[in-house]
Computed example of a mutant assay.
Amino acid sequence: MTFGIYIGSVAGTDSELATGEPDNPSKIKSALSEIQQNDSFIVIRGYIQYLGDSKLAFEAPENILQYSNETRKIDLVLCYRSISYQRDDWENTIKTVIQRFGSKLYSLQITEEPNLRVSFAGDGGFENIDKALKDGVLTAKKEINRLKYQTKVGFNVVPSFNPADNFWQVIGSDEYLELRDAIDYIGLDFYPDVFRPVAEDGEPNDLIESVKNVLRYVRNVNFQEGKIPQSIPIHITENGWPTGEQRSYERQAVVIEKVVRTIHSLKSELNINHYELFSLRDTNSSVEDKFYQFGLLRDDYSPKPAFSIFCKLIDELTQRVTATNKS
């Protein structure tokens, strides 16, 4: 599997962006060097918001290109946050972003959680998000092919258990056949035992069983409704477990190891080839709210126990550097 991590200080909540101390590039690079043991290859996740009228804002982390090198490429999320759909402007902005990041882009995710319709965190509540997703993916794929980059193009979702949600029906319609043919992956953001608690270890529907059930449901129910073939891999684009609010550092380390190993055990069955952790550091370690403490490191970049666990998992399970990775 390919592994990755979000390295910025900014995090999303249900209603706003959570901010803390600014990014410290030297400490981020030091932490990434510890994570990348024995020639491991990783991707670093970043976000930019498109606001319409050619405006881009809220880049997190700032200047993400400074962290890229031969063994470290970028998974960029281009969020869609425009109050009105301007197709030409959206497509031209996508081309500009691709040209800016160039061959350092490992993957480009068009929109953020477009099936999350009623939350600040997702793009699904914005006008014509389905059209923006389709047009954006097709534009990105065409531009990447023109420039002869190897960048993967896709979009991400959250698990959907609501029968009234028509997102996957739209994706599975004839109108979206071009989109289905163009994507290289579909990302999945999911946070077991964070927003909805699971049973104690060893009981029915415990952490491991819950992870398996969600991933199988996404592949075998959501993707089936969207006519997504088994050949399209799943990227776990966001997963993590925060400390604070009676959530111990020790439990965070246990949860992360169990979740990563469970995902890895399903990689062949469900065609999962990619995992990214949210996130490297806390937004603000003094704020007990869970949205502020997702980090493997505190906000001063000192490690929690989960940091060494994640380093160990990458060393054991990751894809190694190859000529293809370096290209």
Rank of each mutant, 00 (worst) to 15 (best):
I98T: 08
D135G: 09
K142S: 14
G154M: 07
D135V: 06
S82A: 15
N162K: 13
T111S: 13
T111V: 14
Y85A: 02
S82V: 06
N92G: 04
Q109K: 10
N145P: 03
K141Q: 12
Q99K: 15
S160R: 05
F120G: 05
P159H: 10
K95W: 02
R87M: 11
R117I: 04
T93D: 05
A121T: 13
N92C: 05
S82Q: 06
Y85Q: 04
T111E: 06
L116D: 01
K152D: 03
P159R: 04
N156C: 14
N145K: 14
F120A: 04
Y106R: 05
T96C: 05
E112H: 15
D89M: 01
F161Q: 13
G124D: 09
Q99W: 09
L147M: 12
F155W: 10
R146S: 13
K152W: 10
D135H: 10
A121K: 10
N156K: 01
G136F: 04
P159A: 13
I144D: 08
L133T: 06
K134L: 14
I98K: 00
F155H: 02
I144V: 15
I98H: 06
E112R: 05
N162D: 15
D130P: 02
Q99Y: 11
K152Q: 15
S160W: 02
V137N: 04
T111G: 06
E143I: 00
Y85F: 15
V137C: 03
G136H: 08
E143V: 00
L133H: 04
G136N: 02
A132M: 01
Q86V: 03
I110L: 11
T96H: 08
A121L: 14
S82I: 04
T151D: 10
N128I: 02
K152L: 15
E112P: 02
D89P: 03
R87G: 00
I98A: 09
L133M: 12
E91Q: 15
I110V: 15
V157A: 08
S119I: 03
N92V: 06
L108M: 11
V153C: 00
N162T: 11
S160C: 14
G125Q: 13
Y106P: 03
Y149M: 14
I110G: 00
Q109A: 10
R117S: 09
P114N: 09
T111L: 13
L138E: 08
N156I: 00
V137K: 00
E91V: 11
V153T: 01
Q99M: 09
G125H: 10
E112Q: 14
Q99T: 12
V153S: 00
D123P: 00
K131E: 08
